[in-house]
């Protein structure tokens, strides 16, 4: 014996199905509502009820956390009924679904980029919408995620001992996100990475690389005189100067030895 719902689902009474689907939606029984909507959107194609129906359909998917389908349906709604009073909302929801699907910063950020893109599109289409403020906030949020990713991946090079790579990656991160909130920390870390790079280089290359670290230090201390990293930076500067002195000494001894060797050879 079929349940009442099952009977309705298989029946051809679309008007009744429509009413029931809306009722189910309002009762928050989204799974059942979706079954009916799936069928109805096909049947109401090209009719006046289709607009409202599709709106509910998109939200049902949204409520069921199927953001992939939801954003597709929101976008279809916005594209199909651009003059509907709900078009703006649906355009926003398209972007918002991407926003929800944007993962943790340490994973692939494809959806993050798409979210930013579609939020920006929303702002461009509806510049006077009251949702613009929220959209802008969401964009900032997403940008922040990208900044964090860029920072973390650059820091990874420093952590695993690829110092030259770290310097380059930190610089790239600041170039890509000029107003990043990690700027101060990264500029400090550049000194550290450059110092370690120099320290772990062959003696013959060390002096130049230390000097570059020194340049980074000067730049940092001028830009952030009261930085929380200032003390650490000053300590680094001392290490750099020590490093330069040491490498000069080593090279001097080395060339002295060479000279002696040569003289020895000549004498023999």
């Amino acid at each position: 014996c079929k349940s009442k719902f099952e009977k309705l689902r298989t029946s051809n009474d679309v008007a009744k199905k429509y009413q029931e689907a809306i009722k189910l939606y309002n009762k928050k029984d989204y799974t059942k509502a979706l079954t009916l909507f799936d069928d109805l959107v096909q049947r109401y194609r090209g009719r006046s009820e289709a607009e409202d129906l599709y709106y509910y359909y998109a939200y049902t998917n949204y409520q069921l956390k199927d953001y992939l389908s939801a954003r597709y349906h929101f976008k279809t709604f916005a594209d199909t009924y651009p003059s509907s009073p709900k078009a703006e909302e649906c355009r926003f929801m398209t972007a918002y679904c991407y926003y929800i699907d944007s993962p943790n910063f340490s994973l692939d950020q494809d959806n993050t980029y798409k979210a930013i893109e579609s939020l920006q599109l929303f702002i461009n289409i509806y510049p006077r919408s009251e949702r613009v403020a929220e959209a802008s906030k969401l964009i900032l949020d997403l940008r922040d995620k990208l900044e964090r990713k860029s920072y973390a991946n650059a820091k990874l090079f420093l952590d695993i001992g690829d110092y030259q790579a770290a310097v380059i990656a930190f610089r790239n991160s600041m170039k890509d996100f000029p107003d990043t909130k990690f700027a101060e920390e990264m500029e400090y870390l550049i000194i550290e990475a450059q110092y370690l790079y120099a320290k772990n280089s062959r003696e013959i290359k060390q002096e130049d690389r230390y000097n570059e670290a020194l340049v980074e230090y000067e730049r940092f201390i001028e830009k952030y005189p009261k930085s929380e990293y200032a003390d650490k930076a000053k300590k680094l500067k001392e290490d750099i100067l020590k490093g330069i002195a040491l490498t000069k000494e080593i090279l001097a001894t080395y060339s002295e030895n060479k000279k002696v060797e040569k003289e020895d050879e000549q004498q023999q």
């Binding site: 990874l156 030259q164 790579a165």
Partner: peptide
């Protein structure tokens, strides 16, 4: 998989 799991295995390093 988190970035660092893959990135730390990669042998092409910036600057090389």
């Amino acid at each position: 998989t988190n970035d660092q799991v893959v990135l730390r295995e990669i042998r092409t390093k910036p600057g090389q």
